[in-house]
Design a protein around this nucleic acid. Structure first.
Length: 588
RNA sequence: GGGGUCGUAGUUCAGUUGGUUAGAACGUCUGCCUGUCACGCAGAAGGUCGCGAGUUCGAGUCUCGUCGGCCCCGCCA
């Protein structure tokens, strides 16, 4: 089918183009056939233009135009005309003009789409994913992909300007049991052996430092076979960064610089630097979360000293077992009904809490089922410590430290929702969380494991603790948090083999095992590894936040559902027996 | 692995205590209509009530199972 190259896009024509003969190519967005005259809104990536078929203007073309339906692909030639007085459409950038059609070529017809191609549609996400090519035809989604594209450019420009080099690393590599579950790829040539897809290019980027690349970055796909969430997909994109001869502050400077450029170029907003910081311990104690949302306060308060000598058995047991009592003050919520409170109790119980202690503050006293177990002093101290006033509601949780703080952190978020404390338009709350624990106690294996990864450097002053009290060792690890979302995480790495051995020993990996699992990196380190460190951004999450969305699926062209299916291509799927045989596999 | 929630026309939804022929809006189709922009008017077609069992004289509605979407906990170095 012959058609001419467009002279203009569908978002381009203005009053200054009146009188021009133009060619437009695009889709039929909306048809309004008034019988004697047909109006078509023609759409492409750039916008909408109203084209007009009129019998007096061109009888044959008008006749032909009657065939048009939604989403037909057309090419038209016509003359730009000023719209008659009073019929301009201020909602369209092209609303001052019409294109009177001289010639229409129908390049393709279309079945009626299952949902309209427009913004603010009510189609279910399931349907949108099945017909993703139609979903992506919507300007809403095209805007998101355009934003993503812009972010790739900003990223590459920024790192290039700062002397970083983008290097690609392998997609097929050795499986390492540490960390997330690997996606495995069976080897055809090596019977019974497997490659893994990268969870991140961690070891490769460190090796690039050994190779003297000095400053590396990469926009890279990573893969983790873990359950999906609104902000987690099997495959996701990182901005991966590594630098030599640096300490924490150098990394922060580079990252903050990038965030500044992002905000400036995407939102035209000047963020104030440096970004504020909290240690992991502070974040957990005040917000019950290692990625706290600081757009609102609602801080938790540790109450162990208030109840240090409490006769209340629940507190007494908890505190003597090294647990914590944490409190949360909900200002002005003293009028919550018993039903609402039962509902909140249910909320924390379902998350694993034993129960929820609540108290209404009334006439400078506390009204609650457990009030009778507390001494007058305790009540007084509790009120003053939380800064509670009449009409307030307070919550307490007690139990093992991290678990209890986490639960209260979830209640904090729930209360923030109920109290409407989260304003989506408030200024961005950027935050560094620092001094993460180096180790994490694994109850199942009864062993310590690396919280970040086993190449993370401890704080120098904590190195002696690695032998005596591993739980107390802090790492030179950090996360960047934006509005309660972890958007980047990294660490200064170990580059000294003696310290590395100590690290492996602490997490119960002997020399032989270390060589077997991490030999590539350990061998490289024998030949002059510079001190180095880095960070990796969750690119999709960042794009999601800049797009003002609540799911990374909205900024990924072809995402999977929360059960890991692709509704458009119906994967995962069964494969031929022959394929399995070739790969030396048998399905149990 | 666990919790919550949803699944009815192409789409978004309503559907009472289990009871006649399952409704509405939008969309689609047909006819009329020369300035619409949510075009209008008149009419029509369109249903495996996710799927499978069970209870019942009778199931969209109740029970069990199962599949799928979304959210969360666990998990995600």
């Amino acid at each position: 089918m012959k058609f001419k190259a467009r002279t203009h896009t569908c978002g381009e024509l203005r009053e200054s183009d009146i009188g021009k003969n133009v060619v437009l190519n695009g889709w039929v967005a909306i048809r309004r056939d008034l019988g004697g005259v047909i109006f078509i809104e023609m759409r492409d990536r750039y916008g909408l233009t109203q084209i007009v078929f009129e019998p007096h203007y061109n009888l044959d073309t008008h006749e032909h135009g009657k065939k048009l339906r939604s989403e037909y692909v057309i090419s038209i030639e016509g003359k730009v005309r000023k719209r008659p007085e009073g019929t301009e459409n201020a909602l369209l950038t092209t609303g001052q003009i019409d294109v009177m059609v001289d010639k229409l070529i129908i390049l393709n017809s279309s079945e009626t789409p299952p949902f309209p191609i427009e913004d603010n549609i009510e189609a279910s996400e399931e349907l949108r994913l099945k017909y993703r090519y139609l979903d992506l035809r919507r300007s809403d989604m095209q805007k998101n992909l355009l934003l993503r594209h812009k972010m790739y450019l900003i990223t590459r420009k920024y790192f290039d300007a700062n002397n970083f080099i983008e290097v690609e690393t392998p997609i097929l590599l050795k499986s390492t049991p540490e960390g997330a579950r690997d996606f495995l790829v069976p080897s055809r040539l090596h019977k019974g052996k497997f490659y893994a897809l990268p969870q991140s290019p961690q070891q490769y980027k460190q090796i690039l430092m050994v190779a003297g690349m000095d400053r590396y970055f990469q926009i890279v796909k990573c893969f983790r076979d873990e359950d999906l969430r609104a902000d987690r997909q099997f495959e996701f994109t990182q901005i991966d960064v590594e630098m030599s001869f640096v300490d924490v502050e150098d990394i922060f400077k580079v990252v903050e610089g990038l965030m500044k450029v992002f905000y400036k170029e995407i939102m035209d907003y000047d963020i104030s630097l440096p970004v504020q910081r909290l240690t992991y311990d502070e974040a957990m104690e005040k917000y019950g979360n290692d990625k706290p949302d600081l757009r609102f306060g609602l801080e938790m308060i540790a109450l162990n000293d208030v109840f240090a000598n409490s006769a209340f058995k629940v507190f007494k047991d908890s505190i003597s077992n090294n647990g914590i009592v944490t409190g949360l003050l909900a200002k002005g919520c003293g009028d919550y009904t018993r039903n609402q409170l039962d509902n909140l109790t249910d909320f924390v119980k379902k998350l694993g809490a034993g129960g929820l202690i609540w108290m209404r503050v009334k006439e400078n006293n506390l009204e609650a089922p457990i009030a009778k177990f507390l001494s007058d002093d305790e009540k007084k101290n509790l009120i003053s410590k939380l800064g509670a006033q009449n009409g307030d509601l307070l919550f307490m949780l007690t139990g093992p430290k991290i678990k209890t703080l986490t639960l209260m952190g979830l209640l904090r978020l729930e209360m923030a929702k109920r109290m409407s404390l989260i304003n989506e338009n408030s200024k961005p709350a950027l935050l560094w969380v620092t001094d993460f624990p180096l180790f994490e106690w694994n109850e199942e294996t009864k062993k310590y494991s690396a919280m970040h990864h086993p190449f993370t450097s401890p704080r120098v002053e904590d190195i002696p603790l690695m032998d005596t009290d591993p739980g107390k060792v802090k790492a030179r690890a950090y996360d960047l948090v934006l509005n309660g979302n972890e958007i980047a995480g990294g660490s200064i790495r170990i580059h000294d083999s003696e310290l590395q051995s100590k690290m492996f020993k602490a997490i119960g990996i002997n020399e032989e095992e270390a060589q077997e699992k991490f030999g590539m990196l350990l061998n490289a380190f024998k030949y002059g590894a510079p001190p180095h460190g880095g960070i990796a951004f969750g690119f999709d999450r960042l794009a999601m936040l800049f797009a003002g969305r609540h799911s990374i699926r909205d900024v990924i062209a072809f995402p999977k559902t929360s059960s890991g299916m692709s509704l458009m291509d119906d994967s995962p799927s069964l494969v031929d027996e022959a394929q399995l045989t070739e790969l030396h596999l048998r399905v149990k």
